[in-house]
């Protein structure tokens, strides 16, 4: 178990990404389907946080809300922004920002990993990895920076040990390789927070362990904040902290080891 200077969950100064009293209700015709009922959860800077819970408990929904892919019915998502160029660091509410701003935050702050990898089938590994950078820049700017970006991507692909598969299409890769490509893609834009939705869910134990090792080392070496959804307790064990969702609420089960 990696040593992580366990902060107090109440220490507001280290909170990186927070879900504050989040409720999410889906409407199915006239029926209200409440999925989250006032979830309160904070991911601290540099923390490796696991969200566990039964299938259908709303884990993915929560992750999407925190990653600004969706908007909560009630509640706030707060992000602690490092003040660049001497600007003060402050915690901002981000869920109600205009779509364009949320797009930019998604692109720069978050990295996503999904259970089904979600690589773009038309692009090869390198291009998939470069996709966030392409999205970030205009064609002109990208073209100017393409060398730098390529080196950046190559370095990360090397880190996930996929250098020999650069020109392969996703359909020519194994599940583990695809997930590693997806991780490389999530990391290439140097995000602050990595959001992973069952990254090992579709892999065998051996491969899953490899992916987990990769995530742990990223967390340790780069201080990356990771929020991971899983329903595998064994996997969750490797994180610093586990949040259990049940009936749309957080069942706070601090780890026994802590």
């Amino acid at each position: 178990m990696p040593a992580f200077p366990q902060p107090s969950t109440n220490d507001a100064s280290t909170r990186h990404l927070s879900a504050v009293a989040i409720e999410k209700v889906y409407m199915k015709g006239q029926h209200r389907i409440p999925v989250l009922r006032g979830v309160e959860m904070h991911a601290h800077r540099g923390e490796f946080l696991s969200i566990v819970g039964q299938s259908g408990s709303g884990k993915s929904t929560l992750l999407h809300l925190m990653g600004l892919l969706d908007q909560p019915t009630v509640g706030e998502v707060r992000l602690r922004c490092e003040g660049a160029d001497g600007a003060p660091t402050e915690t901002l509410r981000v869920d109600n920002l205009p779509p364009a701003t949320r797009d930019v935050i998604r692109n720069r702050v978050f990295g996503f990993i999904f259970q089904f990898y979600h690589l773009l089938p038309e692009l090869n590994v390198l291009e998939n990895v470069l996709a966030p950078l392409m999205i970030r820049d205009s064609a002109m700017k990208y073209w100017k920076n393409r060398r730098e970006y390529r080196d950046q991507a190559n370095a990360i692909i090397e880190q996930v040990e996929l250098s020999h598969r650069l020109k392969h299409r996703p359909s020519e890769l194994s599940g583990g390789e695809m997930q590693r490509a997806a991780i490389a893609r999530a990391l290439v834009a140097r995000p602050e927070i990595l959001l992973a939705d069952e990254p090992t869910g579709n892999l065998d134990a051996q491969t899953g362990r490899g992916i987990m090792d990769l995530l742990c080392s990223l967390n340790e070496d780069h201080g990356l904040t990771i929020v991971m959804v899983t329903h595998d307790d064994a996997i969750a064990e490797q994180s610093h902290r586990i949040v259990r969702l049940a009936n749309g609420n957080v069942e706070r089960l601090e780890k026994a080891a802590a």
Partner: peptide, 16 residues
Amino acid sequence: TRDIGILKALGASSRG
């Protein structure tokens, strides 16, 4: 559809 979701998750705008 799925690819469009991926692109949006990666920060692509609707307009893009």
